[in-house]
């Protein structure tokens, strides 16, 4: 028996065999993120005449396991922007910390001329994401930035793990890009349509899309966050429940209902 203190509390070598120390060493070159681990699914957003609506459900999945069911994937940034994260949750949390330090710096600085608008924030996030991808150390997210730009016009744009950016009156990440975008484009095909759209219509469309996603996206949840950004500020609600679900359609689909064949 080994009585030395460093062996205390360890499984006995004579019973379990010696501890395999190779697990403790990093062998080979250091590795960066190769794939996301805990992930969030779609984020949806749509512009309307006075602002932007954005929504994301509260699920964080570990592969196919619905691991965390109360994760807030929408982040309020000052009074004129909300950021929605799809993809890796730990990278989202890193970005959340980065953004809150940016917000604190901005708020303490007497010298900066104006509050960071949504478009300023989008440029900043784009630089962060593009830098990380260029270092081969990506932040595994697709991010939507919703809010008001410098001129107080509705602003909606996306940036992803490669640093690709684009802006559109309707945007969705992940599964939403396939399932929600066609629905949203029907009510809001272009910028002109967005200028006509009311807040109620926009919210209604987004809620409807969240429902469709819950029906069809296996890594989604019926509990979600939704935010409306207008000149009046940010109205962010967490833990909203999907209402008026109808699973009648599932009856006729093999694998959806209770029938086996």
């Amino acid at each position: 028996m080994n009585h030395l203190p460093q062996a205390w509390g360890r499984p006995r070598d004579d019973v379990y065999g010696p501890y395999n120390n190779s697990y403790l060493q990093t062998s080979g070159p250091s590795q960066h993120t190769q794939s996301p681990i805990v992930t969030g699914t779609s984020v949806l957003a749509i512009k309307f005449k006075d602002g932007v609506v954005i929504a994301a459900d509260n699920l964080a999945s570990y592969g196919s396991l619905a691991r965390f069911t109360d994760v807030k994937r929408l982040l309020r940034f000052n009074s004129r922007a909300v950021i929605g994260f799809g993809g890796d949750v730990s990278d989202m949390q890193y970005l959340t910390r980065l953004l809150s330090s940016l917000e604190i710096n901005e708020n303490y600085s007497v010298t900066s001329s104006t509050e960071l608008a949504a478009n300023n924030l989008h440029t900043y996030l784009h630089k962060v994401m593009y830098k990380r991808r260029s270092d081969f150390n990506p932040l595994w997210n697709q991010i939507l930035i919703a809010g008001l730009d410098v001129a107080d016009n509705p602003y909606l744009a996306s940036v992803d793990l490669l640093g690709t950016t684009f802006s559109s009156p309707t945007l969705a990440t992940g599964f939403g890009a396939h399932l929600a975008v066609p629905i949203m484009r029907r009510v809001c095909p272009d910028e002109e349509a967005a200028k006509e759209l009311t807040q109620e219509q926009a919210v209604e469309t987004v809620r409807e899309c969240m429902k469709v996603l819950f029906y069809r996206d296996a890594r989604s949840l019926d509990k979600y966050s939704i935010a409306v950004v207008t000149k009046e500020g940010v109205d962010l609600k967490h833990g909203e429940k999907l209402e008026k679900q109808s699973w009648a359609f599932a009856e006729g689909i093999r694998g959806y209902g209770t029938q086996v064949n």
Partner: peptide, 15 residues
């Protein structure tokens, strides 16, 4: 301009 797409404030650059 590059990081924030925002012209620097005069007070900021002076500081």
């Amino acid at each position: 301009h590059m990081t924030y797409d925002r012209p620097i404030s005069i007070a900021d650059i002076s500081v």
